[in-house]
């Protein structure tokens, strides 16, 4: 196990290093830079001359070789210096820390909804296969997986405004400042963000559970007179969980991506919106930092899931060729 973990951590470090190289190069391949981007934000008489653009680039250090710039950024990263935003001049970490907390809260609440809702609905639907409840759950799953999130989100905002005159408060309050207001701002977006992953997890969980329910050991458990609840949540759940975990891991990354759209519609100041804005402004330090953080999250979620496989079913032996990285 230790050897396996070491190899996985080494592979994760290599992945992250590759991410730093790819992101660093890619953002510089994009046409324009922070100086041109700034003048492009205001159509009118604000364009800069070529001389001013060159002077601005020099002031930001963008006139140096790409290897020199990369080396400096990597050195700063290793010494835990996230750099400074090209737009605000403030430390990237101090700018993004509050944004990360918003997105983490949003995705965490969505993840709880997905996990609890998806497993429960999947198992209950499987146990009542063919019933009205099963049909309703399957229909819901199909609908939730098919309709785009931004459409549902916009539709809901307009409906709430038109029918009930209700609008989710705009000024964001952190959970530690005003929990009630924060709940108003986070819950509905989290539910909408969760819909598609919830639908997928429900379908996978249902399919796995139907398969497990038809096995001999479940029939034996029932024959022993165990309660349906015990059969479902002790025996079926454990065995149906492995394929669902794979889906769940992929959906966590999807949640982070979906947060970009949801944050825009519901005015949440999270990293999704910050990343889109940073790309528009060619704010390289912010783009690089956020991409790295998201990659870090994806790498460790996958690592965590591999470990969870083993924890749930010790028969699965961790090897260096285990799933993904």
């Amino acid at each position: 196990m230790n050897n396996y973990l070491f190899k996985r951590l080494a592979l994760s470090a290599l992945t992250l290093w590759l991410v730093t190289v790819v992101v660093f190069v890619l953002v510089r391949v994009l046409p324009g830079d922070a100086i041109v981007a700034a003048s492009a934000q205001s159509p009118g008489e604000s364009s800069l001359t070529r001389a001013e653009i060159e002077a601005g680039r020099a002031a930001l250090g963008l006139d140096r070789g790409i290897v020199v710039q990369y080396g400096e950024w990597l050195g700063d990263l290793i010494s835990l210096n996230s750099g400074e935003s090209f737009v605000t001049g403030k430390s990237v970490w101090s700018e993004m820390r509050p944004r990360l907390s918003v997105t983490l809260e949003l995705t965490l609440v969505a993840l709880i909804i997905v996990t609890v809702g998806g497993t429960t609905l999947g198992i209950l639907s499987a146990s009542a296969e063919g019933s009205r409840f099963d049909v309703a759950v399957r229909s819901f799953s199909l609908l939730a997986a098919s309709v785009p999130q931004f459409w549902i989100a916009l539709f809901l905002v307009i409906i709430m405004a038109s029918w009930w005159g209700y609008f989710i408060p705009v000024e964001y309050s952190h959970v530690w400042d005003d929990p009630a207001r924060n709940a108003q701002q986070i819950l509905i977006p989290a539910v909408i963000l969760a819909l598609r992953p919830l639908a997928l997890l429900t379908r996978v969980m249902r399919a796995s559970s139907v398969e497990v329910l038809s096995t001999d050991y479940i029939r034996a458990a029932r024959a022993r007179g165990l309660l349906t609840r015990t059969v479902l949540f002790r025996h079926v759940l454990n065995n149906a969980l492995i394929p669902s975990l794979t889906v769940l891991a992929a959906q966590v990354v999807f949640l982070l991506g979906g947060a970009v759209v949801i944050e825009s519609v519901f005015n949440l100041p999270g990293v999704g919106r910050a990343l889109v804005q940073a790309i528009s402004f060619r704010d390289y330090p912010i783009i690089q930092f956020l991409t790295l953080v998201i990659a870090l999250g994806a790498v460790f979620i996958n690592l965590g899931v591999d470990i969870l496989y083993w924890a749930i079913d010790p028969r699965i032996k961790p090897t260096s060729t285990a799933r993904g990285s």
């Binding site: 905002v157 038109s162 005159g165 705009v170």
Partner: peptide, 20 residues
């Protein structure tokens, strides 16, 4: 108070509800 609302649809909804 200046509210940052990226979506035009949501800005209109904010106006209709008196939020803006």
């Amino acid at each position: 108070t200046f509210l940052v609302i990226p979506s035009p649809a949501v800005r209109v909804a904010a106006l209709k509800t008196g939020e803006a």
